[in-house]
Amino acid sequence: MAESDDLGRIIAGCKDGDGESFSRLVDIYAGRCYGYFYRLTGNKETSDDLLSELFVKLVGKIGRYKGGSFDGWLFKIASNVFHDYLRDKQRQKRLLDGRKEQLELEKHDDRQSYDERVDKLQEQLGKLDDETRELIMLRFYSQASFKEMAAMRSEPIGTTLSKVHRGLKKLRELMK
């Protein structure tokens, strides 16, 4: 409750154009949003770009947030940012071509600060179809309930549940 009050104050500050409030919002959500973009693109540079784009867009859009789950609202924008990115066909092609290459490079990148096991998950996620991968990541990083996810995607809750279940089941098998 206290946490949500605090978030409410931060959002109110953002609506007033307060830079410090935006800074706190970035601190709270950057990690999760970055993880979401990274898991969908498998590319650090692209994730950097998408994360910047998301927060700069937020400056213009924050006034339109009218309550409800802020996480759900934010990840809906993040999802739109990702789809805008995908719509750029040239970049999409580069993403698909570069995904395997990027994974290979990152395996041997001494600067990487996270466990090598991360790559295994990324590799297996790459074997799922785009929609399933996005659904699983949306569920995990936005921390949205199935009800909220179904609302975000404008589809029946049973459909969302079924798709996420099938995706996670397949991921479990792939990771064995």
């Binding site: 830079g19 935006f22 800074s23 970035v26 601190d27 950057a30 990690g31 970055y34 993880g35 990274y38 898991r39 650090k44 994730s47 950097d48 994360l51 910047s52 927060f55 700069v56 400056v59 990487q112 600060s113 996270y114 466990d115 096991r117 991360v118 295994k120 998950l121 699983i136 990541m137 569920r139 995990f140 995706g167 996670l168 089941k169 991921l171 479990r172 990771m175």
Partner: peptide
Amino acid sequence: EGEWIVREYGAPEPDSRLIADIKAEIG
């Protein structure tokens, strides 16, 4: 179980310089 796997295999965190750049861009 599926969500446990995703949680266990955490994604990289954004670079602190990237966060600073984003905050400057927001400014």
